[in-house]
Amino acid sequence: MIKCRILFEKVGRAKYVSHLDLMRTFQHSFIRAGIRIKHTEGFNPHPYISIALPLQLGCESLCELLDIQLEDGDVIETIPERLNPWLPEGVRALSAAPPVGRVGQLRRVRCAAELIYDDGNAAARLDGLQELFARPNLIIEKKTKRGVGELDLAPHIGDVKLKAVTETVLRLEAVVSAMEPTVNPSNLTDAVTRNAPALAPDFARYRRLEVYDAEMRVFR
């Protein structure tokens, strides 16, 4: 078997496809594409696929990673062009290569949030948000398996950039912790809502841009 890691994007309408549904969608898509991949063992075998970092429902991404194992003799590099015609709208393989790092080494994610202010005065929030994200502590509520707890986001966010894009849209970009703790892009607006409610947007869109290891090298 050949280990293969596919970089793919998930944008547009596809952002509402849940993690589990996306796994099933890929399983079907590999079969449609005639790409034979390793199946799970056992009574109910199905194509074995693994997605590195489950993406929050409603969040777009340009940097999702999917691991599969191809049959010997397959050509990894041709996977995107063979797979893409069979994927639903919004899901597209960008490249495929042998995995470089172990999934556990994926530590940071660069993500973006478009904060939308219906009053058309987005820029007026810029300074307040700059100040907010510079605070030493940024507590949010975080749901865990054990219930609702509190998390201080401040040590897990870095490289915050804020920019007014239009009258109604502010763009917030940051590098956040990918694992232990997992910081979702929407946690950025959670921090605003909790710590500076007056600055909270009316609506926000989220997108993952890139994934990194602990040393901020692009992870593949």
Binding site: G12, R13, A14, Y16, V17, S18, D21, T25, H28, S29, R32, L57, G58, W86, L87, P88, E89, G90
Partner: peptide, 9 residues
């Protein structure tokens, strides 16, 4: 929400 978006294969 995926049942309200269309865009399926």
């Amino acid at each position: 929400p995926a049942r309200y978006t269309g865009g399926e294969y």
